[in-house]
Nucleic acid binder design. Structure first.
Length: 109
DNA sequence: CGCAGATGGCTAG
DNA sequence: CTAGCCATCTGCG
């Protein structure tokens, strides 16, 4: 199923791909950077992620600075993996999925 | 604090 | 064009 990534999706992947290692972004931040105002669309684009491992969707968290979900789920063993990945990049989360350092959130502004 | 509704854009038919 | 989807967000009880 070849999906033709829309300009909107490409922008999302481009932003995610621009996230420096050891930092994360919130859906709202990307939506704001894209000037679309919808984090839902971002979530879908990331879930569809045609650019899979090239676009680290695990660096995208909710606006509440929480992990939110991953791989299309809000919980699961994948989340645990996410903790390890982010932790290895310098991003530490609480066992509840909350970001310990708010400075870890990248800013597209 | 918890749930339901509204939101904005994507995919499929 | 219409209907359903989603990893959300906001408001209300």
């Amino acid at each position: 199923m070849k999906r033709s990534p829309t300009v909107f999706e490409q922008s999302v992947y481009d932003l995610v791909s621009k996230i420096p290692t050891g930092k994360v972004v919130t859906y709202a931040a990307m939506a704001r950077a894209l000037d679309c105002g919808s984090a839902q669309a971002i979530g879908q684009a990331l879930k569809r992620n045609p650019f899979a491992p090239e676009v680290p969707c695990h660096r995208v968290i909710k606006t509440d600075l929480t992990i939110g979900g991953y791989a299309g789920k809000t919980d699961g063993a994948k989340l645990k993996k996410k903790f390890s990945l982010l932790s290895g990049e310098g991003v530490e989360f609480d066992r509840e999925g909350g970001l310990l350092d708010p400075l870890t959130v990248h800013d597209f502004k």
